[in-house]
Design a binder for these strands. Structure first.
Length: 280
DNA sequence: GAATCTGGACTGATCTCTCT
DNA sequence: AGAGAGATCAGTCCAGATTC
């Protein structure tokens, strides 16, 4: 990887600086409570992802970002891995705007067998949250000799994490006293309600139907809901375009899931305060 | 305040399965 | 049998919490 300040400056002049663009986006969402849906900031998000991915494919580390003691290649890798946390943070902020409730990204939550770091949890407390959502971002462009990663790369691992976390969280409330007669009934009625919120960068050969099918399956067996936003390189190759969901999967859009979570929170938060955890 | 630990996100390499 | 896709695993990095 050849990387000097001139390369980074040239790229920055072309597509901007990912750290700066992230700071700007976060400040905008925090500063405007009217921003409550992903659709309201989708264009900026796709611009941010395009900017970051350009650095990735050019193998250039952004100036002044990441661990200064790491090599440029490791620094870029580290920055790139952080995109999932950006996604979780922005979704937490949108829900905060939509509900007026405190929602912290990466909240510690006690499950049955361990604590979990949950991307979005409400109420923001370790014991007995009522809504938990995991945010995921998958897919990445080719760089160097590495081929582009598809939206479903490593899905099998993540799916297992989702299923385990959802079940462990639901078991955590009553622990050893939990009684499960019917799996389907129990998992739908036991708090917390669990969601997957998935940002998927599609390769040209990725089909959106495969992504929606996977979410349908995991929601049909373990989770309470899911939402997807997908994007792929535009035909002119100058940025990312949102990929519409198939007509029969509109209910799986990211904004539909956010709306459902908002409704759950607002109903249980009336008249403004979340219900306390149950007494032991 | 530095060092260490922890959980989560993401990756490349490799193994396994499926299809033709 | 061979190719391609899917699944698995170990390793690295990060932020934040904890310990010294």
């Amino acid at each position: 990887m050849t990387n000097d300040a001139a390369d980074a400056q040239r790229l920055e002049d072309e597509v901007g600086h990912p750290g700066q663009r992230w700071d700007d986006l976060l400040a905008r969402v925090r500063g405007d409570a009217a921003l409550q849906t992903f659709g309201a900031i989708a264009e900026e998000w796709l611009g941010l992802m395009w900017c970051l991915d350009r650095y990735r494919s050019a193998e250039v580390a952004p100036l002044g970002m990441g661990n200064p003691n790491a090599s440029a290649a490791n620094r870029l890798s580290g920055i790139y891995r952080y995109k999932g946390n950006w996604f979780a943070t922005i979704l937490a902020e949108l829900l905060k705007n939509a509900t007026g409730q405190e929602i912290r990204p990466r909240q510690e939550v006690q499950g049955f067998s361990q604590t979990h770091q949950i991307d979005i949890a409400w109420p923001a407390r370790e014991d007995d949250p009522l809504v938990c959502a995991e945010a995921k971002v998958t897919g990445g462009p080719a760089y160097g000799s590495t081929r582009a990663r598809g939206a479903l790369s490593d899905w099998s691992n993540r799916r297992k994490e989702l299923k385990f976390a959802a079940t462990d969280l639901k078991l955590g409330r009553r622990k050893h006293d939990t009684q499960i007669d019917s799996w389907g009934f129990w998992r739908r009625s036991a708090p917390p309600a669990t969601y997957i919120l998935w940002g998927a960068r599609l390769r040209p050969d990725d089909r959106i139907e495969r992504v929606t099918r996977q979410v349908e399956r995991v929601v049909g067996t373990y989770l309470d809901g899911g939402g997807i936003v997908a994007w792929r390189t535009s035909s002119d190759g100058a940025g990312y375009d949102a990929v519409p969901l198939p007509a029969d999967a509109q209910s799986l859009s990211l904004d539909e899931a956010l709306r459902e979570i908002k409704t759950r929170i607002n109903r249980q938060a009336a008249p403004g305060q979340p219900p306390p955890p149950p007494q032991a």
